[in-house]
Amino acid sequence: MPLLDVRDLRRAFYGVTALDGVNLAVRRGTITGLIGPNGAGKTTLFNCVSGLIPPDAGRVIFDGVDVTGWPAHRMTARGLVRTFQIARGFPRLSVLENLVLYGARQPGETLWRAVARPPSVARRERELRHRAFDVAERLNLTPLLDMPASDLSGGQKKLLELGRALMTEPRLIMLDEPIAGVNPTLAARLAEHLRALRDAGITFLVIEHHLDVIARLCDPVIVMAEGRHLAEGTFAQVAADERVQAAYLGRRAATA
């Protein structure tokens, strides 16, 4: 049974079809790549699966449970978390706060406990801070913990997004262009982190336009075009696929 199973997912915006019946599956323990030309529906797929927008039709099965149309906060609690294409987050929170915020089950996030402060609040806060320090250590963010997130470089913001996702104790992380705008050294290190995390048991679904990164990192690679699943296989296989080449480069006009 795949970890994530998307069946015949459909979504249109004011009559424009973004997802036209997507079928795809993400196997456990893989770093699955998701590529396709602009407008193929990759980010819409992420939005529908992660609960930011509801799909019009179709099913999303996560770890055997039908989670179609669940809101984002429930998906995250369930173990599916996503990042954003343009590093989004909380610029006016410190890096540490950004991380700790993503921790689950903080009783101090209810109003009366925030005011009354039973011991459970401080206890959980210590646990979450400890976890945040570990995550920061792993991603080399420790020296930046006290900085406002707005002061980070583009690459550091991408690392922080990954770190925040890790704070949720996820089983599947969906990364939307994690390498975009990141310098090559940091990109290589990010890839290293992903491999290590995969070996630690986390599954990844990665949208990325840098095909060299996809080639080195992802297996299998899924190709989307025009709102559908077009091809799947190793990078070499899909790169050799004529349909994929046509989707990226356009078809030669049929000549009689």
């Binding site: 992660s50 609960g51 930011l52 809101p71 984002a72 906060h73 995250t76 609690a77 978390v81 996503r82 954003f84 989004r88 987050g89 909380f90 610029p91 006016r92 929170l93 915020l101 993503y102 689950a104 996030e109 925040r164 949720t168």
Partner: peptide, 13 residues
């Protein structure tokens, strides 16, 4: 205040 969509992804109602 900074981004309510990302806050939802962070697991908050």
């Amino acid at each position: 205040r900074d981004d309510d969509q990302v806050a939802a992804v962070a697991g908050k109602r």
